Amino acid sequence: MDKMKIAVLGGGNSGYALSAYLTHLGHCVKLYKRSFKRDKTEYEYEMNASGIFDFSCSIHMVTGNLDYALKGVQIAFLCIPAYCQEMFFDDLLNSLKKIDYENVYTVLMPDNYGCILLEDMIMKRGMGGYNRVLSLGSSLFASRAIDDRNVDFKGIKSEILVSSIYPEVVNDGVSIMNRIIDVFVKGRNIFEVNLSNMNPVVHTAVTVMNAARLENTKGEFDFYREGITPSVARVIEKVDMERMEIAKALGIETETLMDYIEHVYGFRKSGLYETLSESFVHTRANGPASLESRYVTEDIPYGLMPMAAMGRYLKIKTEAIDSLIVLGTIASGKVFDGEICSRINNYIVRNQFTF
């Protein structure tokens, strides 16, 4: 295995887990945390892993300076919420312009259709020669950051789909990432990649259907084992069926949620309820403290709403998806403008995209 210089941008559950694991594998990792002051940098930052892994490591650098994080790296993994992408991309492109950016791969993990926005921003910045942008269908781990120094690893995926708005870079990008960890597989296009993201399929249904419990307990219950009952599982299964119908109409082969869990985690029971409620991956995870959660504020506008929009375009009924969008929007008091759906439509028209 080659030792690579890698930036991980984002200090949440996914960013902490990825930084610790890649450091454990022997790579030189620089973690960017927006919560750090710009002039704050710590070297040999100690992290501890528990759960399916048991190790301690020292991340080379943790910094609040994005320029420092990107300098000299070969690849930068963006582990940020979808609703932060526009603001973060602005900072990212400012920093990339200060270095030899054409040799840096930017990896959206997961993509959440952020690649379309990033392409527009690249062109507006006069950086049209930059095309090393990769889109992933999901993060590598099921994990929770216990605190700033400790990560609980619940599962690691055996396969992650990769595509790009720049198809010419995918083969090389997949090859380079597989030198880091061999789980990346070329997907057909960004739609296949994004429709392989199961977070919106599961999270929103469990959150909305447990709204009273979330607010009364501040999330102090086992989100999957206690939050998923047979009736909740039926809603999840219907959302999954609608997702698959959309994918089929787009000429994309995709797995059911149950097949996906078996494929990437090696776990399966007799039905979806049993699979989700008994999975070793979906355990010991408290729910969000309120509906002010990524399971609503990210998974609805960047996951369910694009699926619903594609369903309307393809004349496919999305009753379960539509219901969760309406209930989640009303219950959370949020107004989601559907801007990402407009971007997707413009991307299809601009590129004369055919499926």
Rank of each mutant, 00 (worst) to 15 (best):
T229F: 02
I59G: 03
L108S: 10
M123V: 08
V193F: 01
E292N: 15
I321M: 07
V232R: 07
L257E: 08
L327V: 07
G287S: 14
E278Y: 03
N194L: 03
R38I: 13
S58M: 10
G72P: 02
E339P: 02
F141I: 00
L161Y: 12
G10V: 06
V281P: 00
G129F: 10
S143H: 06
N286M: 10
E253K: 05
H27V: 09
S19F: 07
L136Q: 04
A249R: 02
E339H: 13
L31N: 06
S138P: 06
Y273W: 14
N48W: 05
K5E: 13
N216Q: 11
R234T: 12
S35L: 10
R243E: 00
N199T: 12
G129D: 12
L9H: 04
R294H: 05
A249C: 09
V208E: 00
I236W: 04
T283I: 13
L134Q: 04
D2R: 14
V206E: 08
V162P: 06
A142K: 06
T207S: 14
M177K: 09
T106P: 08
T329A: 04
M47D: 01
E274L: 01
I6K: 04
S290M: 05
S58Q: 15
D259R: 00
G72I: 11
K30R: 14
V326Q: 09
L18M: 13
M47L: 15
Y101A: 11
N94A: 09
S58V: 08
N286L: 11
D172W: 01
N199Y: 02
A20R: 03
G303C: 10
N346G: 07
N94E: 13
D147G: 13
K124M: 11
L22M: 15
E86N: 13
A49R: 07
L140H: 11
V239T: 03
P230N: 10
N210V: 12
I228A: 02
S231Y: 12
P230R: 03
I156Y: 05
S277E: 08
M241R: 08
E298C: 12
L9P: 06
L161V: 01
L117G: 10
F280N: 00
M4R: 15
F53I: 02
I176T: 09
K317S: 14
K334E: 13
E292A: 14
R132W: 01
G173R: 04
S196N: 14
E245T: 02
Y21C: 00
Y265P: 00
K186G: 05
V174P: 10
E42G: 04
